[in-house]
Design a binder for these strands. Sequence first.
DNA 1: AAGACGGGGCC
DNA 2: GGCCCAGTCTT
Length: 353
Amino acid sequence: MNSFARRLLAWFDAHGRHDLPWQHPRSAYRVWVSEIMLQQTRAETVIPYFQAFMARFPDVRALADAPVDEVLHLWSGLGYYARARNLHRAARLLLECHGGELPAERDALEALPGIGRSTAAAILAQAFGQPEAILDGNVRRVLARHAGIDGWPGSPAVQRRLWAVAEERVPGLRMADYTQAIMDLGATVCARSRPECHRCPVAGDCVARAEGRVADLPTPRPVRALPVRTRWAALLSVPEGVYLERRAASGIWGGLYSLPERDKAGELRDWILARWPGARQIEPPVDRIGHAFSHYRLDLRLLRFALPPAACGIMEGEQAIWYNSRLPTRVGLPAPIERLLIEHGDSDQWREP
DNA sequence: AAGACGGGGCC
DNA sequence: GGCCCAGTCTT
């Protein structure tokens, strides 16, 4: 075993995290779900979602048998909702093609939706003990610093070098522990800001440490300004609730339920009045929700409407619901929309006086 | 190769 | 308010 892995494992035995929920018990299914949740999301954020998910979907069959809306419901607030839809699709594929078990082969894993190179490797290493290298954000940071690799890790050339280093250092033994160890080191000691090099088991031969470049590695992504996108949304109230419709499966908030939206206020108003001729706009007319995505900033402006009492019954359909925060429907909601509905609570307050 | 895709935690 | 995270998929 190489010296890097040996020191890391000794550190892990003494200081690593041994109490994460997906470690007890460590089944392939639990490792898989945890790895998907952990994509782009911190462990502390994931833990409560993981617990709720396992309570509701204890195995592949429970997940496959559930309606996708319920999976999205338990994913609400976690973001990147394609992950949840892929997880659900993959569970159904596992039942069809792999007897409901996760395959222990890299190609078969990577063929499942939502599983790429790193996640496949994480499952193989942690659930099956195979000598596969992972390369997630934490590992990228540890290796870029320890090996002194310059350049933004998003670029293909830098990625290739990082993968090569990651593979060189795989120990072959204790793969579950090693995989957890290198992620833990990145999550705790070798953190993005204020790394604690004095506590690092591999600081002795860390290139960034030796060259005083710990704070400069890994190289940050090139800067670019975020565009602002303005959209108009309608808060349509009846005593029974607020009108929500299912969004398209792809794109922002895919598959979640949200307020009807248009690019222009006029388009939105015209659509509403055509559908509900008795709708009346409520003053003050405009409220707004600001929301930052990784690639643009959303300025969502709200128009409020009260509908005639009979409106509710007409519109019930599979793609639209009347949502009441006191009797929440089990569907996925975007985090800022859920906050709005909770803040305003009872829909009765939007009724006309 | 580049862009799309969420939300929260941290500074 | 900016940065970026336990990546993958689409184009």
